[in-house]
């Protein structure tokens, strides 16, 4: 469904990604693991069209989408749940959810939006209870769910998740990963970026290991879980 070919991304002429080629097949969960500063977020930002200086290609459904604007890429069915949630923290929960369907509002698909809101609230009942609350006042776990809910409003075919477990209690992390599995079972392809390698490898089908902007290892999630190097560096021995 999505492929990158020799993707190189620069911040002020310094490369943060060096020739990355990954493949995300339809219906799978693919994960990128790596330490802080490895370039994981940069990769997701590049796919979402948030990085201007790019080399290489990003192929989505047989078309090169590198160079498109971020709002165009959302329209193609790629939504990102960014690192640190990035909610509209001064707006209400409902506003955040509505804005997730911004492109559909613009096309006046009111009926479809209402249905989608019901689905999303069905998935996260707590958000419906808190729909009039200001987003910034939610707990960390609720904020992460809202960030996912907002991204789902665009009916993505490919969901990019950037460290959804960051800063959350273990029980909440478990809940978030259950949500990810459920989304995948209902047909959403997922590219998951994580520092929490243990949880990510449990959920994923295939995994890549990123170090200082370069891919150093790849394989099925099962193989990588058993890999000595991965165990030492990312799974705490």
């Amino acid at each position: 469904m999505l492929k990158t070919e020799g993707l190189t991304a620069y911040y002020d002429n310094i490369p943060a990604l060096k020739g990355i080629s990954i493949n995300v097949p339809k219906g799978q969960v693919v994960t990128i693991i790596g330490a802080n500063g490895a370039g994981k977020s940069t990769l997701l930002k590049a796919i979402s069209g948030l990085i201007k200086s790019l080399e290489g290609r990003i192929i989505y459904k047989e078309k090169n989408i590198a160079g498109l604007l971020s709002n165009q890429i959302v329209g193609l069915g790629i939504s990102q749940v960014p690192e640190g949630r990035q909610l509209f923290s001064h707006l209400t929960v409902q506003d955040n959810i509505n804005l997730g369907a911004y492109l559909k509002f613009k096309r006046r698909y009111r009926h479809e939006i209402d249905e989608r809101i019901k689905e999303v609230f069905g998935m996260f009942p707590i958000l419906e209870k808190r729909s009039e609350q200001i987003a910034g006042t939610l707990s960390g776990g609720e904020q992460q769910m809202l960030a996912i809910a907002r991204a789902l409003m665009g009916r993505p075919k490919l969901l990019l998740l950037d460290e959804p477990s960051m800063g959350l209690a273990p029980l909440i992390v478990k809940e978030i990963f259950e949500v990810i599995e459920r989304l995948n079972q209902s047909g959403t392809t997922i590219l998951l970026v994580e520092q929490n390698a243990r949880a990510a490898l449990k959920t994923a089908d295939y995994a890549y290991v990123l170090e200082t902007g370069e891919l150093v290892l790849e394989g099925s999630a099962k193989d990588l879980s058993g890999n000595i190097k991965v165990k030492e560096a990312y799974l705490g021995g």
Binding site: L50, S70, V74, F88, L91, L99, R150, A151
Partner: peptide, 20 residues
């Protein structure tokens, strides 16, 4: 929704472009 989108830009421009 346009008004909300403007508030969203004020709140978090990066997230605003991520929702389109």
């Amino acid at each position: 929704i346009i008004g909300k989108a403007m508030s969203a830009c004020a709140d978090n421009p990066g997230a605003a472009s991520l929702v389109g």
